Amino acid sequence: MNSETIIPKTIISKSIFNPISIMKKITLISIIALFVISCNDKNAAPPAAAAPLLPVLSITNSNAVTDVEYPAALQGAVDVEIRPQVSGNLEKIYVDEGAYVNKGQTLFKINERPFREQLNNALANLHAAEATYLNAQLEVDKLTPLVQNKVVSDYQLKTAKATQKIAFANIEQAKAMVASAKINLGYTNVTAPVSGYIGRLPKKQGSLVSATDIEPLTNLSDVHEVYAYFSLGETDFIKFKSLYNGTTLNDKIKKLPPVTLILADNSDYGTLGKIDMVDGQFDKNTGAITLRATFPNKNGTLRSGNTGKIKLGIQHDDAILIPQSATVEMQDKVFVFTVNKENKVTKTPISISGKSGTNYLIADGVKSGDQIVLSGIDKLQEGQLIQPEKSKKQIAQK
């Protein structure tokens, strides 16, 4: 459509004699002109959008510490089952479940009357054996001068001395029976072998207990120190050993840094622990080896049977770190937007080998000297032009 509109002469000539008609024609011409202008505007190309201004980070190598977590099971420094060593009725229970007891404190009392009678019987046998020995000694004393004066034969004296030895042996045997009876009598008084916390009490007063019972009287845990046991696979264990100096495994253990215990509620236990034991062999069923970390437990916060995680810090030198906020995940892959010399972005896949705080430790995909977009990446397109803004943000190191 042409923006220049030609008005027919016939219209002009006729309009001289009709003012109203002239006004109508002028209005019509204005409408046509506006329509032509609007058509021309639609055909014109829209102005190009300005390249967005986005912060860009130049990647540099730095030192980093990554955390690796392993499930752990906790045990007290001493966990013992309290079992009866003699059979009998449980006469008294002196403690309650969960109570703290001291070493040597009485926990249970088994009816001692049968064992008291056994001791009395053993004492009576001892006295009888002592009396027999005394008679044998008298016989030897009587025959000795008679043999010396050749009144009786030497054979009788030898027989008397043999009888004396048998009597002496019976005394020793009787003494052993007395000692055994005393031990059994002492077993009726069940005491705490260590200081610690009492577990459940499945047996009640009056129950018949025996040394062959499947279930113990209770469990006792000494938790002034707590052991956290965790396992490493063969590959992880080889990497673990290669990180620390030392000619032997014991040397490496001494140089290990402190470790953190993460409790079941994902909070950190307030005191650091120390790895002090590596099992002597791998478990053939799981292919893993067990390690032990020891944690002080002065306030008794931790108990046997707790679970948690051991967090190991691994040092990495000359590592490449990228903020997690500068990455985007798509179809199980992680990408960053790198910026080339023409300030155009490229979606680049990266391989992550670990995490350090809020940063990713990069194994492959980018290198030192590359530039990546820090934020505003959710609307970027492949090959899009941007205006880089040098970021003053520093990669946080642990």
Score class of each variant (00 low, 15 high):
K309W: 11
I322R: 09
K347A: 13
D317T: 15
I320E: 00
L302V: 12
N297F: 11
T327G: 08
R292D: 03
E342G: 03
R292F: 08
N343V: 02
S304I: 08
I310W: 07
V339Y: 01
F337E: 00
N343G: 01
V334M: 08
V328R: 06
G313D: 09
Q315R: 13
E329R: 07
S325L: 12
F295E: 01
T327F: 02
S325R: 13
G308V: 04
V336N: 02
N343F: 10
F335E: 02
G300P: 13
H316T: 09
I320N: 05
F337H: 04
Q324C: 04
T301K: 15
L302E: 04
T327N: 06
L302M: 14
N343Y: 10
H316C: 09
K347M: 15
V334E: 00
F337Q: 03
T307A: 14
A293W: 01
M330A: 05
S304E: 02
L291A: 12
N340T: 08
L321W: 04
N297D: 07
V328A: 07
G308S: 10
D317Y: 11
G313E: 11
Q324W: 02
P323A: 04
A293E: 06
K344S: 07
T294G: 10
T301G: 10
Q324H: 02
T294D: 06
A293I: 06
L302S: 11
K347P: 06
H316R: 12
L291W: 09
V339R: 02
R303L: 14
K347G: 07
P323I: 07
G308N: 04
F337S: 01
E329Q: 05
K311G: 08
T338M: 05
K341T: 12
K309F: 15
T301F: 15
K347N: 06
F295H: 07
N306L: 12
N299G: 10
F335W: 08
A293Y: 02
K333H: 09
I310E: 03
M330F: 07
L312Y: 12
I320A: 08
V345Q: 06
T338K: 13
F337G: 04
K344H: 14
T348F: 05
I314D: 00
N306S: 10
K298M: 10
P296T: 09
T294A: 09
N340C: 07
Q331V: 03
G313T: 10
G308W: 03
I310S: 09
N299C: 05
H316F: 15
F335R: 03
T348I: 05
F295T: 08
N306T: 06
T307K: 14
I314K: 12
G305P: 12
A326W: 05
T348K: 13
E329G: 01
S304T: 15
I314P: 02
A326H: 01
M330L: 08
N343H: 13
P296R: 12
P323G: 10
T327E: 00
M330G: 00
F335S: 03
R292G: 10
K347H: 06
I320P: 03
N299H: 14
I310L: 13
S304D: 06
A319F: 07
V334Y: 04
G300F: 11
I322F: 08
G300Q: 11
K344W: 01
I314V: 14
F337C: 03
K344G: 07
N297E: 09
A326I: 08
N297K: 13
D318W: 02
T346C: 00
P296L: 09
N343I: 04
I314N: 12
R303S: 14
L312R: 10
L291Q: 04
